[in-house]
C-alpha cells in the first residue's frame, strides 16, 4: 500500500536526534549509577558500566561529546536561518520559535480536551513540540556548564568563587532529573503511547509522515504547503521494510531502557539527595 508521504525531517535532523537518544540514554544510565550508588540497584547498574569509577569516566567524556553535538547543532541552526528574510524566518510558520499563536493554540486545545470548542489547527510545529525542543535546548548548556565546572573544579574555582561548586552539584542533579523525568514520561507518551502515535510515531525515524496524518494532525501546515505549491516537492517514498524493522526495534529498545531507568529511579528515589 503506497500511501503518499510528506518529508518532515531531513537526514541530518534524524542524525541529530539519534545522537541525542544515544548520548542521553548513556548519560542517564551512568549518571543514575553514580547518583543511586548507595542502593542495590545503583550498584548493579555501576557493574554494567565497569564500576563506580568507570561510570564517571564514561559520563564525563560522553558529556563532552554531547557538548560538541550541541555546538554543531547550533551551527546547523544558524545555517538553517534564512538571513536575508530574517523576520519571516524567525517568526514565520516554519520557525521553532514560540509565538502568540502557540499560546492561542494551547488555550484552544485545553478547551477542546474538555469538549468545549473545536480542535485547533496546528502548524508545522505544535506548541508542545516547540516546548520539547527548547526545554532540551536550554537544559543542555545548564548541564554542560555545571558539568564542566564539576569536571575541573580547581580550575573553575579560579574563575568563579568555589562555593558556586555547591550550587553546580545541585543544579546538575536537579536539571538532570528534570530532563529525565520530562523525556521519559511526557515525550515517550506523546511519541509512543498516545492513540494517534501508537505503536510508534515514526516521523523522527522514517523522516516522513503519511498524508492522512499530515491532514489530521497538522492541518494548518497542510494548507500552507498547498498555498505555496510545495506539496509536490516534498513527497517522498515510504521507508523500506528492513529500515522500518530496524527502527522499530531500536525505538522500542530505547523506550524500554528509558522506562526501566525511570521506574527504578522513582522506586529508589528516597535514598538520594539533590546535593
Amino acid at each position: 500500500m503506497q500511501t503518499t508521504r510528506i518529508k518532515r525531517f531531513s537526514i541530518l535532523d534524524r542524525g541529530f536526534h539519534l545522537f541525542l537518544i544515544l548520548t542521553f540514554l548513556i548519560q542517564t544510565a551512568t549518571g543514575f549509577s553514580r547518583l543511586f550508588f548507595p542502593t542495590v540497584w545503583g550498584k548493579n547498574l555501576n557493574a554494567v558500566f565497569g564500576g563506580y569509577e568507570t561510570s564517571i569516566f564514561i559520563h564525563k567524556w560522553v558529556g563532552v561529546l554531547m557538548i560538541w553535538g550541541f555546538i554543531f547543532h547550533t551551527l546547523y541552526l544558524l545555517t538553517r536561518i534564512d538571513w536575508k528574510n530574517l523576520r519571516s524566518s524567525l517568526f514565520g510558520p516554519d520557525s521553532l520559535i514560540p509565538n502568540f499563536q502557540d499560546v492561542k493554540h494551547l488555550w484552544q486545545r485545553i478547551l477542546w480536551f474538555f469538549g468545549i470548542g473545536s480542535r485547533p489547527r496546528m502548524g508545522r510545529w505544535a506548541y508542545w513540540e516547540k516546548f520539547d525542543y527548547w526545554a532540551v535546548y536550554w537544559g543542555m548548556p545548564l548541564l554542560a556548564i555545571t558539568g564542566i565546572m564539576l569536571m575541573y573544579p580547581v580550575a573553575a574555582s579560579n574563575y568563579v568563587p568555589g562555593w558556586t561548586l555547591n550550587i553546580a552539584v545541585l543544579l546538575h542533579r536537579a536539571e538532570a532529573i528534570l530532563a529525565v523525568s520530562y523525556i521519559f514520561i511526557v515525550h515517550f507518551y506523546v511519541g509512543h503511547l498516545r492513540p494517534s502515535s501508537f505503536p510508534m510515531n515514526e516521523a523522527m525515524f522514517a523522516g516522513s509522515i503519511p498524508m492522512e496524518e499530515l491532514e489530521e494532525e497538522k492541518p494548518a501546515w497542510f494548507d500552507q504547503l498547498k498555498n505555496e505549491g510545495k506539496l509536490e516537492t516534498i513527497k517522498v517514498k515510504p521507508p523500506t521494510l528492513v529500515y522500518k524493522i530496524v527502527y522499530f526495534i531500536f525505538g522500542y529498545a530505547a523506550l524500554g531502557f528509558g522506562v526501566y531507568l525511570l521506574v527504578n529511579g522513582i522506586i529508589y528515589s528516597r535514598y538520594i539527595t539533590l546535593h
Binding site: I110, F113, I177, L178, Y182, V186, L193, R194, P195
Partner: peptide
C-alpha cells in the same frame, strides 16, 4: 521541576484521553 511536570503530565493525559 514540579511546575513543568504538574502542567505537562495532566496535559498529556488529557491529550490521550481525548484522542
Amino acid at each position: 521541576l514540579a511546575g513543568t511536570l504538574t502542567f505537562f503530565i495532566p496535559h498529556t493525559i488529557l491529550m490521550g484521553l481525548r484522542e
